[in-house]
Design a protein around this nucleic acid. Structure first.
Lengths: 107, 107
DNA sequence: TTCATTTTGGACTACTTCAGTCCAAAGATA
DNA sequence: TATCTTTGGACTGAAGTAGTCCAAAATGAA
């Protein structure tokens, strides 16, 4: 699975590789066809349940899909301040490391 | 300025270093005292305008405050999936690099 | 202790955002 | 042509959020 792609592009490709129409996938996953179309176009966010359904339906790693989606949301957030984006991510990484360290240190 | 601290902790320290009560800073910045207290406790998000005011009032770098705040929000987001957080940030960084590259390449 | 001031947090309102649905138009295919 | 798929606008109800106000709790000084 290519992670450079957005979540929507990833899901769309999975569907098209299998030659399936939106309607059929939407029906199988019990979501509205229009919703699915919007998710593929990144106009609607998938819920965690959606991601679970995608993973099991397309037989791909749920973890990878999660990473694909959540990294999208992070990118979207930091691109508001494009010139600071790289620095923001670096600081965020340090903070995450710090937090995880704190946790394991006190267990 | 230490960036490991949260935005709220950073602002609180700036205020306490100067020995000022919430009331006085809030008044100068034209925000509700209770709001300021909540921002210091990370119970309310500052707006961009708030951050500008903090920077000019305390005479610190607006950019650093921005990074402090936005990295907090990123951390908050990825810690929802703690075990994936580091990977999410790595992928996000790649995507940001890719996007910025695309942009400069086509200019 | 008492009094004054600061800090905290609950409750509320108004506003915004967003998931999800439905439908109709546009596009594609045969 | 007719049929199926894709797209997006419009809407609703729910959830989230900024900001305000007030009162209780905490702090500190005399």
């Amino acid at each position: 699975m290519k992670l450079e792609k957005t979540f929507g592009e990833t899901v769309k490709k999975l569907r098209e590789e299998r030659g399936l129409p939106l309607r059929e996938v939407a029906e199988a996953l019990q979501i509205d066809t229009s919703m699915l179309g919007k998710i593929e176009k990144n106009n609607r966010k998938p819920t965690k349940q959606h991601i679970e359904k995608f993973a099991s339906y397309f037989k791909v790693s749920e973890k990878d899909l999660m990473i694909s989606f959540l990294s999208d949301t992070v990118v979207y957030q930091v691109m508001d301040e494009e010139d600071l984006s790289t620095e923001i991510l670096k600081v965020a990484e340090e903070k995450v490391k710090y937090i995880i360290n704190q946790k394991t240190a006190t267990q």
